[in-house]
Design a protein around this nucleic acid. Structure first.
Lengths: 234, 234
DNA sequence: CGTGCTTCGTAACAGTTTGTAACGTGACGC
DNA sequence: GCGTCACGTTACAAACTGTTACGAAGCACG
């Protein structure tokens, strides 16, 4: 079974208890908290698969909290609220909520929607690298992940530095998806690189060694690998 | 910009037309169909980023169709229905829908939920139409989406900047449809541009590079691409 | 420990892109 | 005809990016 970990952020203790009991019976691992500080602490403490976030949290604002969480993490968030007006719902979606459920709600319907979001989130690609033990082909080029070797369409071998290889792998893991400098820096586990122009330099050097047209610039945004990638299992 | 491809499956022609027009103005590439056969054909023809699926399709059953599609593909599906009872919603989620929206609905809320699902699905804007309709012809001109190249009727090549290309694609996605500045800004994912006269400048620069007569001004309203667009499969 | 090489970052410069401001011009209502 | 306002166009400034140059850090080797 799933054993997903849910975080219920709800300041109404009775409501939170009922919700937690129900969800636990449905096979989820539930953490409860009632305010912003508790939610952030729980997120810091460990991985959370989905957040049920009440909009009205007493002193704290659920919408603002949603935005705050979303800035740092891509964790699925379902907002729960007694406020059901369209503009209030849209405010929730605006700050990155995956769904917005008005109180009172049918618990079974909530469950269905939790499952729908979890299913979808489970398949979302992340910025992490994929399997290393394969050969990737893109636009006539070839990257052997086991040997860290890059072969040009003509058969020539190109030697990349460690950092260039890491960058290439980031692109290969996210083909045709525009990546910001911040995302690239994060994928390289190098937060400092996000500040200066190190990423630009790196991209420039990689471009010089492989086909410059393969990495396109998204002005004001970042860079994209302009080719599809085929994974050859070996 | 977005340029996601949506498939609207709706047997009420008027409703479908309104929906398609609205979504096109929001910068989506919309395909319409009214029944199961049409939906399956569209899915077979090319990649679709999201399906808006009406539950009541005359002879066909939307819920069954959803299940059928889900068995074959992981494409995001939002069900749309006049049936808003909880058990009917749950039936939708049961067969793999990502969201379920009851009619009548606020178009802006629908838009927010489409965006939420697309974001979670992690789909890069579909490049299918680039491949399948990778060459668009309009009034003797030609736009190769794969290379972002524009060719004049005489055969000369015109080089457009990124933003000019984006604007041209917005027009090509909405031929003969008058677009307000706000709609263009929205399609360009640039809310700031709606305020000043950036859109006017952009249109002016695009006009200068291609035939000025191709983009007509709707005084007091916005601009129209004054040509039909043919999609050349490649 | 010094030397030479490679790698990788910052600084600086130039070319391009794009928005704002300003001004003229043409269209529309009267 | 005429005033007003939307729009086209020019000029300019700011931002972004590619590229070069250069220096620091790491590493192999004698």
């Amino acid at each position: 079974m799933s054993l997903h970990r849910l975080l219920v952020v709800e300041d109404d203790v009775e409501m939170a208890a009922m919700l937690a009991a129900y969800l636990q019976r449905q096979g989820f691992y539930v953490t409860r908290t009632g305010d912003r500080a508790g939610a952030l602490a729980a997120l810091k403490a460990g991985r959370v698969d989905l957040i049920l976030l009440d909009v009205s949290l007493g002193a704290d604002d659920g919408v603002a909290l949603c935005a705050e969480i979303r800035q740092a993490q891509d964790v699925p968030i379902i907002m729960v609220s007694a406020l059901s007006a369209d503009h209030q719902r849209m405010a929730g979606y605006q700050v990155g909520a995956d769904d917005y459920i008005a109180k009172p709600f049918n618990p079974d319907l909530l469950l269905a929607r939790i499952r729908a979001v979890l299913r979808r989130a489970g398949r979302a690609p992340s910025l992490t690298h994929r399997r290393r033990d394969s050969v990737l082909r893109f636009a006539g080029w070839c990257y052997d992940a086991r040997r860290d070797e890059v072969t040009a369409p003509g058969g020539w071998q190109v030697s990349l530095s460690g950092r260039e290889t890491a960058l290439l792998r980031v692109f290969l893991a996210n083909p045709l998806i525009p990546l910001t400098r911040e995302e690239i820096a994060a994928a390289l586990d190098d937060d400092e690189a996000a500040g200066g122009r190190a990423i630009d330099m790196l991209v420039g050097r990689l471009r010089q060694k492989i086909d410059p047209a393969l990495i396109r610039t998204e002005r004001g945004t970042g860079y994209v690998l302009a080719a599809e990638v085929a994974h050859d299992p070996v």
